[in-house]
């Protein structure tokens, strides 16, 4: 239990937050970890705020309750910052990664964030430039694992390739991997 990490993903319906939560979990499992991943199910609508969760642990995960105090938060859509309390339950030493072109310093000032390790990455722009679509989920995984140190990037890439190959063409898979790598490199800390 002490070695369990909980991650909360904030996104809007259609941005791939659930896929991100699942991909992170599967990558962690390939690294020998125990995992859980689940979205918050409500009225599912394209564009509506939603959350998804990943649990990663060195020991089997028994609990089946909600994630209330995530150590890591990833925000896939900057417009959520105005409407959703993305810091809810996040401990003072927690990690927050936001998809935005703003710097972490300026984001901290504009949102009056105290404590937490804050990171930013222009994930939508990276997605547009690599994948050609404004779907920020794969770059956000890259940024998030760099910011949190949760997983090795090569493990994530290997698993993403394996998982995406079932659904997408080789070109789409490689573009997503490129997006993960770029976000991993470009994520900014304070």
């Amino acid at each position: 239990m002490s070695k369990m990490i909980e991650v909360r993903w904030h996104g809007r319906g259609g941005q791939g937050a659930k896929t991100a939560a699942y991909l992170l979990a599967e990558s962690a499992m390939q690294e020998g970890k125990y995992i859980q991943a689940f979205p918050e199910y409500g009225p599912e609508r394209m564009g509506a705020p939603m959350m998804a969760f990943t649990r990663i642990s060195d020991t089997p995960i028994r609990i089946h309750c909600h994630v209330k105090t995530p150590q890591v938060v990833a925000v896939l859509d900057p417009t959520l910052l105005e409407t959703v309390d993305i810091l809810d339950g996040v401990p003072k030493d927690g990690t927050v990664v936001v998809n935005t072109g703003e710097s972490p310093d300026s984001l901290r000032r504009s949102l009056s964030i105290s404590g937490r390790r804050l990171f930013t990455v222009p994930a939508t722009q990276i997605a547009l430039e690599t994948i050609g679509k404004p779907i920020p989920n794969t770059p956000m995984i890259g940024a998030m694992i760099k910011a949190s140190g949760l997983l090795n990037i090569e493990a994530v890439i290997t698993n993403t390739r394996k998982s995406f190959e079932k659904k997408f063409s080789g070109l789409v898979v490689e573009k997503n991997i490129q997006a993960i790598r770029r976000a991993y490199e470009e994520v900014k800390s304070e």
Partner: peptide, 12 residues
């Protein structure tokens, strides 16, 4: 088995 809690959660 419990709806969503188990049915829609990825586990090992």
């Amino acid at each position: 088995y419990d709806g969503f809690i188990i049915s829609h959660a990825v586990e090992c």
